[in-house]
């Protein structure tokens, strides 16, 4: 799909901060608010904008800490439907955050979130590895998140180190 400049510019703004008002977007792009509103609606309908998630650092909140694992899954593709059907069986579980089909030594990359190590392990052994056509799983627990979806979790690059007035 080919998008107009206005559409591309709106996406660039929303990707950085989707809570910005349509008025501010309109002023930045010399568009009317009405037009911005309509354009965003169209991008949503076309599924160009898929959703507006919020990145939350749950691990800072007492009692809300989570354990995240990335699991390499090898499967035998099923006749006729290939990997898609197995992927679907996996991604339907709410504790599964993401499922990707990969090139290389394994087939599906699954990100899994749980409250404890045991919870994640149990899911892998009881649910994931028992699915037909899953040959093997390798579980990697994430020890620390440095950067997620383009956002640095900790770090001081954002501090303004400039002097208040310069020529």
């Amino acid at each position: 799909m080919k998008l107009s400049n206005d559409e591309l510019n709106i996406l660039a703004i929303l990707e950085e901060n989707h809570r910005i008002s349509t008025e501010t977007i309109a002023m930045q792009l010399n568009m009317t608010e009405e037009n911005v509103h309509r354009t965003i609606k169209k991008l949503e309908e076309d599924k160009i904008i898929v959703s507006y998630p919020t990145l939350i650092d749950w691990n800072q909140i007492e009692g809300k800490e989570t354990v995240v694992a990335m699991i390499d899954v090898k499967v035998t593709p099923q006749h006729g439907v290939g990997f898609d059907e197995i992927a679907e069986r996996i991604y339907r579980y709410p504790e599964v955050n993401s499922v990707y089909l990969m090139s290389g030594t394994y087939d599906l990359s699954v990100t899994l979130e749980g409250k404890t190590l045991q919870e994640v392990s149990k899911f892998v052994s009881n649910k994931l590895s028992t699915i037909d056509n899953v040959i093997s799983t390798t579980t990697h627990f994430i020890l620390k998140k440095y950067k997620h979806d383009g956002v640095v979790i900790e770090g001081n690059d954002d501090d303004d180190k400039r002097m208040v007035v310069t020529p």
């Binding site: 303004d160 400039r162 002097m163 208040v164 007035v165 310069t166 020529p167």
Partner: peptide, 20 residues
């Protein structure tokens, strides 16, 4: 002007002649 602004807290600066 810099001396004045630099001595204050909570200043929003549109006075900076360099990229952010």
């Amino acid at each position: 002007f810099f001396d004045l602004a630099a001595s204050m807290e909570g200043v929003v600066s549109l006075g900076v002649g360099e990229p952010d």
